[in-house]
Amino acid sequence: MIELLVEHSLGFAQLQDGGRFGVRHLGITQGGALDWVAMQQANWLLGNTADAAVIEIPLGGLQLRAQTSGWLALTGADLDAKLDDQPLAPGQAFQLRHGQTLRFNSPKRGVRAYLATPGGFAADPVMGAVATVMRKQLGGLHGNGRGLHNGDRLQGNASDATPRTLPAGALWYPGNEVVLDLIPGAQIAAFAGVSLFAAFNQVWTLDQRADRMGMRLTGPALRYQGQALISEGIPLGAVQVPPDGQPIILMNDRQTIGGYPRLGAVTPLSLARLAQCAPGQKVRLRVVSQEAARREMLNVISALQAQGASFGS
């Protein structure tokens, strides 16, 4: 099985898996890979279970050296990766030989790359998951919520891979405009009519303030006319609108409860895409029904399991 030495890291690359469940009533956020589709594809390439622990690499700035030879798979963003000096395109399983380096430079397409190894990367789960939550000092390689740092050593859980090949075009990258599907709900009826029209007919811009907790959109100010809310649980993808009228899409590391009015929730598939969007990206919100969104989600999951790709909308 492979052993990797972290030779250089900006500290943002981190272990992620499917997330932490059954503990949210304790105030513990769910965590997990932001682009869960890319995570599942990386694991699929090696024949792993879909949620095995991977390295989530935002933007680059990571260099790994193989201490032993072994299999890896790379999906998600194109971070101008180099295997020694050779370009390495995302979307494939490959072998890294003892002494070779793997370097992630800076984003060419997308934002977050995912690196998998047979059986997943080894770490002791904290409250049922390996997912790193930096803000809460929970999970990750050492259990303390730290990202990968220089000198860290990573091991796989298994040696044997059944490497597979993704069909062409299986990886998704943002175009000029990205459409995010939103299931309406919560306090949507208490927003001003003109604000609702603006929300779904104008173009939004992804703000600089975009991280694993939330992604802020800038555009027309949305006006909420309802009463102040009592704090309540916040689902994944919730679009909350604070008093400044600029929506925040709440991601995997969000707070567990909150009191801002919400338009509804962005679908998990759209959240995976949002995870590949950089600040400045143009975004549109589109209303979908819960039933249609669920159907699409189930189709995508079964397609990912069967062929590592889904060519839905």
């Binding site: 299931i183 709900g185 919560a186 649980g233 994944l236 929730a265 669920r294 989600m297």
Partner: peptide
């Protein structure tokens, strides 16, 4: 109330 693809309030 519908809250998300898999969540109800």
């Amino acid at each position: 109330e519908s809250a998300a693809i898999d969540s109800l309030m």
